[in-house]
């Protein structure tokens, strides 16, 4: 009986942590991937910086943030921590993140559009939730610099 109980516990735990496997579709309501009208801004302390996703997370880099309402998995997208002009942050830092909370692969994840650190806002994604590359950040800064010269 003990063995059966232990087995049931393992099964119950597995059902909680196993990502959705191929062959099953999540319940998905109609609407865009990133609905900017549902954006929220949260504050918290960075507890972990993940340059690569852990098992079950969506692709790209992540910040694990301790907020006033609990832990937050903030997805920064594919390029969030890469290249020149990228966000550089360490555990213990206070950050402000703006994005949309979603359920993906059976887990709550915060799709981060901007991260504000020490008063500087870093753009991770555009208004549709598409990741912004280091090359695009460089282009944007060049354009800003050129505009500065013309003034």
């Amino acid at each position: 009986m003990k063995r059966l109980f232990a087995g049931l516990c393992v099964l119950a735990l597995l059902s909680l942590v196993a990502p959705l496997s191929a062959g099953a579709a999540e319940i998905r309501t109609a609407g865009p991937y990133y609905d900017i009208s549902k954006e929220v801004t949260l504050h918290g302390t960075v507890s972990s910086v993940l340059t690569k996703p852990s098992k079950g997370m969506i692709g790209g880099s992540h910040l694990l943030i301790q907020t006033g309402v609990g832990p937050l998995d903030a997805s920064l997208g594919r390029f969030g921590l890469q290249g020149r002009g990228a966000l550089s942050v360490e555990p213990g830092k206070q950050v402000e993140v703006t994005g949309v909370m979603k359920t993906l692969r059976g887990k709550q994840v915060f799709i981060t559009r901007t991260v504000t650190l020490d008063g500087h806002a870093y753009t991770m994604r555009n208004q549709h939730g598409v990741s912004m590359s280091p090359q695009a950040r460089e282009r944007a800064s060049e354009k800003t610099a050129r505009k500065g010269v013309s003034l």
């Binding site: 062959g23 099953a24 579709a25 991937y33 969506i58 993906l104 939730g129």
Partner: peptide, 11 residues
């Protein structure tokens, strides 16, 4: 299959 989303299989 979306890298930043989920997998919808045979829907």
């Amino acid at each position: 299959d979306e890298n930043s989303g989920s997998i919808f299989s045979g829907v």
